[in-house]
């Protein structure tokens, strides 16, 4: 799994590529923690290139969302497809997260 960090108008976008599992999920958490320490609390996670996510991965997204909210920020998820969407649906967390179909939508939601 690779994480690429971009920034758009103060909003951090993490492009994740690969499978998210028990062993690498903490990397995402650490990365977001690092962003928060750098004062960035509005984060978009792009799951476009993610083929698989397990319960630990979901767990990391949940705790990151919670941490960001506590810091007055937000976590939005974009491009959730196929098996990853299935996992979100199975765990009934689709409405728990802010999920957007595209990056533009997620970005405009901040301006609204």
């Amino acid at each position: 799994m690779d994480i690429t960090v971009r920034e758009n108008d103060g909003i951090v976008i993490l492009d994740i590529n690969g499978e998210i599992d028990l062993y690498n999920a903490p990397d995402i958490k650490e990365n977001i923690k690092g962003q928060m320490e750098g004062g960035k609390t509005n984060i978009i996670i792009n799951l476009d290139k993610v083929s698989y996510i397990d319960s630990s991965g979901i767990g990391v997204l949940i705790s990151s969302l919670s941490n960001l909210k506590k810091a007055g920020g937000s976590l939005k998820i974009i491009n959730v497809y196929a098996s990853v969407r299935k996992v979100f649906e199975l765990t009934k967390l689709t409405s728990f997260f802010d999920i957007y179909d595209s990056e533009e939508e997620a970005l405009t939601s901040y301006n609204a």
Binding site: K29, S55, S56, I58, G59, V60, I62, S63, L65, S66, T91
Partner: peptide
């Protein structure tokens, strides 16, 4: 418990 420890 920390949020990432959840259970179905």
């Amino acid at each position: 418990v920390t949020e990432e420890r959840y259970a179905t």
